[in-house]
Computed example of a mutant assay.
Amino acid sequence: MITIETQEQLDTLKQENDALLVLFGGAHCGVCQTIKPQIFDKFSVKFPNLEMVYIDCEQMQEICAQHGVFSLPVVQVFFMGQKFIEEVRGFSLIALEQEVEKVFAKMNS
């Protein structure tokens, strides 16, 4: 999972990848640090075409604010540069996986 350090880097990844998952978290967010490897391990196997990146909101506050992220964790999933999915704070990784799967299925049909 790539760690994003600039808005330009994120914009480029949105343009270059058909599917991009962005995890907004923080070093002092226990939930963020717990789900980060779970998302990476599970989703990288199930969705090999899904690029995954991490943004540390404690370090990159401006990027997080530009994306409307004011609580942690937040997952945003972009397809073709457009945000399709957003999960905030208490969410189910299983439900997130199912949502991503639905969008991939629609894109491939």
Rank of each mutant, 00 (worst) to 15 (best):
R89V: 13
V22N: 09
C29D: 12
E99A: 14
I39R: 06
T6P: 07
E58N: 02
M1V: 15
S44G: 07
V75W: 00
F43T: 05
Q98K: 15
Q76W: 01
F24A: 10
F78I: 00
T12G: 05
D56T: 06
Q33L: 14
P37S: 14
H28R: 13
N17P: 03
D18T: 07
K102N: 13
R89L: 10
Q66G: 05
V22M: 11
V100W: 04
V22W: 15
P37N: 12
E16P: 04
E51K: 15
P37K: 09
Q76H: 03
Q76L: 12
D18N: 11
F104W: 06
V69E: 01
S109D: 08
E16D: 11
F40P: 00
V100M: 00
V77Q: 00
V53L: 12
S92R: 11
F84K: 10
C29G: 07
P48W: 05
L50F: 09
L10I: 11
L93N: 12
L20K: 09
P73N: 02
I55E: 09
K83S: 03
C64I: 06
F43L: 01
M52I: 02
A105G: 08
Q9T: 09
V103N: 00
T12A: 11
T34S: 13
E87H: 11
I94L: 12
K102P: 06
R89Y: 09
Q66T: 03
Q82A: 10
V88Q: 12
A27P: 00
M60F: 09
